[in-house]
């Protein structure tokens, strides 16, 4: 009989081992601690606006980027930060193409240009064909959406809405901050409209094709070049420019940054004023509103 009971015991042990080895381990991945909601953004205007609306209720993350954030390629650590964020604020209009080539949770992403998606400016690219799907081109949108203050206000509204969704209890706090910003943006918008409204058909040059929304928003016809502020354009370019000058009424040129003195000098000699209008896509010393105020001031000076 001892044999029988030991066999039963053996079977019990075996089944216990099988049981305890069964792959039924569910683990919960929960966020540790009670830290502030973490909001990741793709450019400086969004960083600035979010910071102003969210205040100390949130932690905003905008990576250190060298160059234009629109063409940035994130490293693995940055991707992980974005993946783990409670909220990812995108600019929309195909800005930061990298967001389309990495894996980010869709539920945390908010396109902050969603309220004016119908107003986005399309840019045609090269059309080509290969393979069975036929002819196609890689089209895109102009992406410095925030240079139109009306767009900037809609970005701010989308940010405010996303933050309220994230922390509904702070709705009032966010609303108050949002209204403050809207007031300032509306003021800037009126100023811009006023400055650009003095001339019926305002035409301006731009050192780079980044002022599409500014042009569209304030009725400025913009003739764009690909000139760098720290690089003297070739003589050929100057010749071309001189030709254009004859065909256009524009007598000021937008620059993303202060150009070399010789560039400014040459332009001045041609009767073209330099207007530094910084898009401010990347981190800078000003907040978004102050930078835009400074830009408006420069434009005002340039057009006078």
């Amino acid at each position: 009989m001892r044999g029988t009971s030991s066999s039963v015991l053996f079977l019990l042990i075996i089944s216990w081992i099988i049981f305890s080895c069964s792959p039924d381990k569910k683990s919960n991945q929960q966020k540790e601690g009670n830290t502030k909601p973490f909001v990741a953004v793709v450019n400086y205007p969004l960083y600035s606006l979010t910071d102003m609306i969210g205040g100390d209720r949130i932690e905003v993350f905008f990576p250190e980027i060298e160059g234009d954030p629109a063409y940035w390629q994130p490293d693995e650590a940055s991707i992980e930060k974005f993946q783990d964020a409670d909220l990812i604020l995108l600019n929309g209009a195909d800005y930061a193409k990298w967001t389309g080539t990495v894996s980010l949770p869709a539920s945390t992403q908010v396109n902050t240009s969603k309220f004016f998606s119908h107003r986005l400016i399309e840019m045609k690219g090269e059309v080509h064909s290969h393979g069975p799907e036929g002819e196609h081109s890689h089209t895109g949108y102009a992406f410095t959406t925030w240079l139109d203050m009306k767009n900037a206000a809609l970005h701010a509204e989308a940010i405010k809405e996303a933050l309220i969704n994230l922390i509904p209890d702070e709705k009032d706090f966010f609303n108050v901050n949002y209204i403050k910003i809207i007031d300032k943006l509306n003021k800037l918008d009126s100023q811009l409209a006023e400055i650009t409204g003095t001339t019926d058909e305002l035409e301006l040059f731009a050192s780079h094709p980044v002022y599409q929304y500014l042009g569209k928003g304030y009725d400025i016809s913009i003739i764009s070049y690909h000139w760098e502020p720290d690089q003297m354009p070739f003589d050929e370019s100057w010749k071309e420019f001189e030709n254009e000058l004859d065909h256009h009424s524009a007598r000021a040129m937008f620059w993303e940054d202060e150009p070399l003195p010789e560039i400014s000098g040459k332009l001045e000699s041609m009767g073209v004023k330099v207007v530094v209008f910084m898009p401010g896509g990347n981190r800078n010393e000003f907040d978004f509103i102050s930078l835009m105020a400074k830009n408006v001031e420069n434009l005002k000076k340039g057009l006078n």
């Binding site: 919960n28 992980e80 894996s103 980010l104």
Partner: peptide, 29 residues
């Protein structure tokens, strides 16, 4: 799918990490 799937199903990793870029994948146990 999107990374939301893993969060929704509450699945954790036995090794490695989430897919980061195009061309990445993660395997079921």
């Amino acid at each position: 799918t999107t990374l939301d799937y893993l969060k929704f199903r509450n699945i954790s990793f036995s090794e490695g990490k989430k897919m980061a870029s195009l061309g990445d994948c993660i395997l079921g146990y």
